[in-house]
Amino acid sequence: MGESAVYTADVLLIGAGIIGAACAYRLGERGLKVRILEAASAPAMGSTGKSAAGVRVQFSEPTNILLSWESIQEYRQMPEAAYRPIGYLFLVPESEWPQHHKAVELQRSLGVAVEELCLEDAQHIVEFNPKGLAGATYGPADGVVDPHGITMEYLRRSRTLGVELHLEAELLRAFRQGGVWRVETRRATFEAPYILNAAGAWAGEVGKRARLEIPVQPARRLVFATAPTGWKHNYPLTIDLASGFWFRSEGERVIFGKSNLAEVGFSTGMDWAWLEPTLEAGLDRFPWLAKTALDRKASWWGYYEVTPDHNPILGRMPGVEGWVNACGFSGHGVQQAAAVGRLMAEEIAEGRAATLNIDPLRYERFSSRARVAERNIV
């Protein structure tokens, strides 16, 4: 690309993570000319590639349940997704049981199989200290996938539909002019009637460069890994809702973590000081973790893209012609990407998403009292 080159499209899609790739594929199916602008030197280098790879339907709000459930159905049919239904096990404190029970009733009413377990039955799945707990819930269709494999497959399908991927194409400035968005990068300029912001942890910064306020911030999250344990295990992704500590099997290892909710911004590297409070919470509930050894080289970090209510921002930007958001997933992007791709294609090609009501996740909620009160945030 020369410096004076101008490339046109119907949609400029910012970000080649799993959300951007799914959206590109579905837009390409609609016959739209799509160009993906990715700041990194390869796809899936941000939150997608650093994800703990879980997919679950155990949410408390209908929109989140359905976004995840419909995505899991698609991943089941995609060999590249490497979907493994290892399950999610929630250990629920006494104070949270009434609300959690209501969430299970909602999940079941939407056609999702979720089980309520007494503490004794839950102990047959994972050994834990039952102090302060009322019960557990288990989602047998929840599990893990290969986010990188899914992203690359969507991009492969996209290429067959004429979608073009531009790497090292960081959006430096974007402005609306003559009925199109004009995007400037270091190598070229791009023009299209639509921009779809799927920039993940960088979505807020992308908005600023277009003089838009998009409430998405990066938040570093750490995944600690043990050395091979020396015993056979197939632990589901288990979450102690009392502390926020989670873990699951990863081959012969156990991976685990706990979100530092005070951390916001582009911090980099492993925060080893956070290991102590993480382990303190983990050992209190799961004393057997003391038998494991940490493998620092196998541990990793990445970013959540968080919004004020920890729910994504989907759909058209109010009062801004041709700008659509699919960002702010707050750790739920991998598990909702397949459904979001279809919905954003509807939003752009048909004028409005139709197969699922995304109104609770639209930008307008931030200027009203109609916030989505999702309780099952990890």
Score class of each variant (00 low, 15 high):
Glu170Lys: 15
Ala198Ile: 03
Asp309Leu: 01
Ala81Pro: 00
Glu346Leu: 09
Trp246Glu: 08
Gly207Gln: 14
Ala337Gly: 06
Leu67Arg: 03
His100Trp: 12
Leu27Val: 11
Arg108Pro: 00
His101Arg: 12
Ile195Phe: 00
Lys102Ser: 15
Ile239Phe: 11
Ala373Ser: 03
Ala210Gln: 07
Arg253Gly: 04
Gly302Asn: 01
Arg371Met: 08
Ser51Ile: 00
Ala290Glu: 15
Gly265Gln: 13
Tyr194Gln: 03
Val254Gln: 03
Gly31Tyr: 13
Ala339Pro: 04
Gly15Asp: 01
Trp69Asp: 00
Arg221Asp: 01
Val306Cys: 05
His233Ile: 09
Thr8Glu: 11
Ala262Cys: 01
Ala22Lys: 04
Ser51Val: 02
Val57Leu: 00
Ala174His: 14
Pro308Trp: 08
Arg182Ile: 15
Glu168Arg: 15
Ile348Lys: 06
Ala298Gly: 05
Arg176His: 15
Ala113Ile: 10
Glu127Val: 07
Cys327Lys: 06
Glu153Met: 10
Leu279Pro: 11
His332Trp: 00
Met45Pro: 00
Ala141Gln: 13
Val340Ile: 15
Glu127Ala: 15
Gly200Asp: 02
Glu321Trp: 05
Gly179Cys: 14
Ile255Asn: 02
Ala353Gln: 06
Leu165Glu: 05
Tyr303Gln: 05
Ala103Thr: 04
Gly251Phe: 06
Ala113Leu: 12
Gly135Leu: 01
Leu165Met: 01
Leu110Phe: 03
Glu170Pro: 06
Pro79Trp: 05
Leu133Thr: 07
Lys291Trp: 13
Thr226Ala: 00
Ile19Thr: 13
Gly257Thr: 03
Cys327Met: 09
Arg84Val: 04
Gly265Ile: 01
Ala24Pro: 08
Arg285Ala: 06
Phe175Gly: 09
Val306Leu: 10
Lys297Thr: 08
Gly302Ser: 03
Gly328Met: 05
Gly111His: 08
Ala134Tyr: 02
Ile65Gly: 01
Trp231Ser: 10
Leu67Asp: 00
Ala281Pro: 10
Gly269Glu: 10
Pro85Arg: 10
Phe256Pro: 12
Val126Pro: 04
Leu167Met: 12
Glu3Lys: 14
Ala210Tyr: 11
Met152Asp: 05
Phe247Gly: 00
Gly328Cys: 08
Asp146Phe: 01
Asp121Cys: 02
Leu237Asn: 09
Tyr88His: 13
Leu106Arg: 03
Arg187Val: 05
Ile358Ala: 08
Ala373Phe: 08
Lys131Asp: 14
Glu280Gln: 10
Glu105Ile: 09
Ala198Thr: 09
Ile313Thr: 06
Ser47Cys: 12
Trp300Gly: 12
Val114Phe: 04
Val104Met: 11
Thr355Trp: 05
Cys118Asn: 12
Asn234Ile: 06
Gly139Ile: 10
Gly2Ala: 14
Leu343Gly: 13
Ile150Pro: 04
Thr8Trp: 06
Ala201Asp: 03
Lys258Ser: 00
Leu165Arg: 02
